[in-house]
Design a protein around this nucleic acid. Sequence first.
DNA 1: GCTTACCTGTCG
DNA 2: CGACAGGTAAGC
Length: 283
Amino acid sequence: MPELPEVEVIRRGLEPLIRGRRFAKPELLFPGAVRYPSPEDFRRRLARRRVAGLERKGKYLLVRLERGELVAHLRMTGRLIYREQGAIADPHLRAALPFEGGGALFFSDMRKFGGLWLLDNKAERSFTGMHRLGPDILEEVDRARFLSLVRKRPRARIKPLLLDQHFLAGLGNIYVDESLFHSGIHPCREAASLTREEIIGLYRSVRAVLEEGIRYGGTSSRDYRDARGEQGVYQHRLAVYGRKGLSCRCGAEIRRIVVAGRGTYYCPQCQRQPEPVDGSREQ
DNA sequence: GCTTACCTGTCG
DNA sequence: CGACAGGTAAGC
């Protein structure tokens, strides 16, 4: 899916296209895409509302309205594409959100994991799961906070910890693997085994990788498209993700393992093995 | 923690 | 045919 950089690129691209525009009555090709309120209420209540601005929290995109907000989560294959005229040619189109005076925002989603919510107030954010998010890694976490967050979870392995949106919001599978590679940390290391310097280095790597991802328009591994339907180019700059069997710049062969149920790419030479978990040493 | 489920598609 | 895919919640 879109991780933080992809959602941010969509946000930046979409905002100038739809800010100030007033929605007309939506068309739901797959009503299940609307999570709240009911599809009928969604259609009736979104109509005539004006877009005040766009925000992002973790991987959620928030279309702030003059009253309430339209929230989108793209999960794995969701797309939000604006067209000035005509519709997108996409067999997985789930919702068309036209504007008064022309133009429309199209939500497509091959795997149907993504969703849309129309909220009247902040309290209703609990319907989306947003209220359980940890702090946004780019907007809300400085070095000191990152250090203290990581140290609060000594027993967790670092990759699953970084993927946990309740811990930190925004990172996904691609950018976690890239960040761990750039900081030279093996994905299975226990948080408690990381030195202060390693945690600080990881913080810098995470920020640098996410900012690079944004600068290059996001990663279009396969499905991701920006607000105009264009691919990003960061996939050409990935150091390890998806590169099993290819050589790292150090010469070693990039490996793929499974960590926390996710395909995980790393360089066995640049990223140190975790401390052996060996109960016998304790006895 | 881990596994499974959600869904549809691609690739080997 | 099975394995895998950018995410996340639920159930052991």
